[in-house]
Design a protein around this nucleic acid. Structure first.
Lengths: 255, 255
DNA sequence: CGCGTCGTTGACACGGCTCAAGCTTAGTGG
DNA sequence: CCACTAAGCTTGAGCCGTGTCAACGACGCG
């Protein structure tokens, strides 16, 4: 059963404000949130949202943007080399956080919308987590911290993929990562999810050429590990995929 | 002029305790430290140090070790694949921090000593930075935070290297990174530093084979960009090296 | 209908890997 | 002082994974 909060037809502007779900689900999984904290999050997602079209720049390289939460759509952290080569450093999915509160370095990556994207102002979340009030530490603070640590784990996975895995393994590994993250945001069925990425984007993420990504996808199809059509992935043999990818579930991250 | 704090002959156990310098220099560069904070750091480095030989395991994959500071020697964060392939995710240099205080995920990487290594207990630093006492925020807290953010920047550089650069470019980029980091710890002259790494270690860091690292080094020697003998690197043409590496100074990181 | 974007395929080149051997250096024990 | 050994470095030959170039097909949109 797919999310009931899909709005009927085309995207005629930001939806009513029911879109707090990915953030709520994800942060709620990282730590238990109080009712007050839940409403802070909901409120932030109801607030004025920033909308960007596909290919829009969320922030430039070297910027130090105010913290935002990705409410819907896909984005990526991107670094360009002088001669135009491009590397996608990380994918940003609904429920992910994009900037950091003020004491921060200039971002070494630009952030780029890969689809149409809605961003909420995340400043209230950080503000609310800052004052160590009643509880040992606020659940929100723990969740934000855990999200940050998780991002670093993903970065390390990316390093291993790029440094020591073949094209086939990289693709398997990335698909499993995306499935798990989407699932944490409530956006994936166990073996099926939307993948709104062109092969060029996959190539730039996995450090390969477009052509080779294509061949790799096809091989994986022929091996009947996955189906991939029309922006939908179906994982046919999760076990095999996991062993190909040398997958190790990062499990808990429950603080 | 090289550091005057080199103790005379062989390594007959931890030195008197003068080895707080890399940590002090590095953290002091990230934020201004109060006299009290300086003495906390000095004290931690005088305290009982943990010593490991080259190849010793600082902590295993999946562990959640107490925070430590690398006082002397080189180490690395390492991930192994099931079939024995190895990827060095990051290098750890004197002045770097290794674990995090308790609310932390199980480490996705093992930490491995690459040379003989001395570790100080970093818990006092984190403890001291936790209570937001007098100043706006303690300089130590800001420095520790900046160190963490800087680590993430380095990880992203590593992703770009592995994803989109050639062997030659990767090596150039890594050498420049190491020079800069060692310099921040007071362990490098402008164009010369110690590089106590075997070519196998370089290969595992740069996602290449030993043989190819060797050829790449030789090419760089023939091009007279660097000299590299007996664990010493001399950078002969910094400008050229920077343009090869697509180097962008991450500059400030002054909060 | 025409155009642009994306996906697909083939031919070929090349960077980097593997295998294999020889070399240098430092350490060790006779 | 000299084998002897082990670790690290170097070099060559050949292969293979991946990149490049080029063309074509499929689809969606104005």
């Amino acid at each position: 059963m797919l999310p009931a909060r899909l709005h009927p037809a085309g995207h005629e502007g930001p939806p009513p404000g029911v879109e707090a779900q990915p953030l709520l689900r994800r942060l709620g999984r990282l730590a238990t949130l109080s009712a007050a904290e839940v409403s802070i999050i909901t409120e932030a997602c109801r607030g004025p949202l920033r909308e960007l079209p596909a290919r829009g720049e969320i922030h430039a390289e070297g910027a130090c943007p105010p913290p935002a939460a990705l409410v819907s759509g896909w984005a990526a952290r991107v670094r360009m080399l002088a001669d135009g080569r491009r590397q996608i450093v990380a994918f940003l999915l609904p429920g992910d956080l994009i900037g950091r509160p003020p004491p921060c370095l200039p971002a070494p990556c630009a952030a780029l919308a890969l689809t149409r994207v809605l961003l909420a102002d995340a400043q209230p979340l950080f503000a609310a987590s800052r004052f160590p009030q009643a509880p040992p530490t606020s659940g929100l603070a723990r969740a934000l911290r855990a999200a940050e640590l998780q991002e670093e784990v993903l970065l390390r996975d990316q390093v291993v993929r790029l440094g020591r895995q073949t094209a086939y393994e990289r693709l398997a590994s990335l698909l499993l990562e995306l499935r798990q993250r989407l699932e944490a945001a409530g956006l994936a069925e166990p073996n099926r999810f939307a993948l709104p990425l062109t092969q060029e984007v996959l190539a730039d993420a996995l450090g390969l050429s477009i052509v080779h990504i294509n061949r790799t996808v096809q091989q994986m199809r022929r091996d009947r590990l996955i189906e991939l059509r029309g922006g939908q992935v179906i994982i046919l043999q999760q076990e095999t995929l996991q062993s190909v990818a040398d997958w190790q579930d990062m499990a808990g991250l429950q603080d």
